[in-house]
Amino acid sequence: MRKSTMIVTLVVVLLFIASWIFKTMTAPEVDSTFDALTQGFLVTFAAFLTLAIMSFLYQDNPFYKFAEHLYVGVSAAYAMTLGFWSTLVGNLFPRVSETLCGWFQVEFSGQHDWQFLIPPILGILLLMRLSPKGGWISRWALAFIVGTTAGLNLPRFLRSDFIEQISGTFLPLLVDWEGFGHFFSNLSLSASGQFVAILSNFVIVSGVICGLIYFFFSKEHKGAFGSASRYGIWILMITFGASFGYTVMGRISLLVGRLTFLMDDWLGIISG
């Protein structure tokens, strides 16, 4: 271990202990689930993990790696435990075995439903992946999953993402049309106004059609077709921009969430 690494580790450990002691002394007593010592540890540990992950912004380091691996491990274990209790104990055992129900203290459904044994068999087949020789058997279960998912999804996607979307584009290009005189005399940029309604319908319809034209590969994009395709790619780029903007907003929200935790729950320095 390098000397600088040792110093940093020592400082982190000392800060951790200091924070633990401080948070234990200032722990609110309202929380009855944990005693003050545990509460102090939990807040300090959460703050440590947050800072460890954030330290990646400076550069990769052992604290980051520790926090990342811990996160991956804990969420996998949590999902597995919850899956066991909600799926096996919650859904399967009450339908197949009275003895197991008694063991896990859940109510038995009253009758044995043998068709519910098929899913666990498929599950065991999936686990055969771990065996170097019998690995191929898992493909049967995988084939079942891929096949049923595709079959389930096809009609749903065609309905919601295709047919409903096509008929959703059947928009009137002239909303509340009562002639040009009426249109110009009521011209306004208000969101509920006629002009904006007509404009948005026009953008949606032209955007969908020109976007489709951009993805039309059987004809060279020249002339009017080329213009429509260029308009299509503009619309696509604006969409990507909006999407990018939303992503930035989302990431900042997460930062705000973590900073609020650090400044309020851990350091307790927020005013007001």
């Binding site: 900042i252 930062l255 705000v256 900073l259 609020t260 400044m263 320095i269 927020i270 007001g272």
Partner: peptide
């Protein structure tokens, strides 16, 4: 970005 966010949180 960190400083701007922290300032706004601190002063509410």
């Amino acid at each position: 970005v960190f400083f701007a966010t922290a300032t706004a949180i601190y002063y509410n």
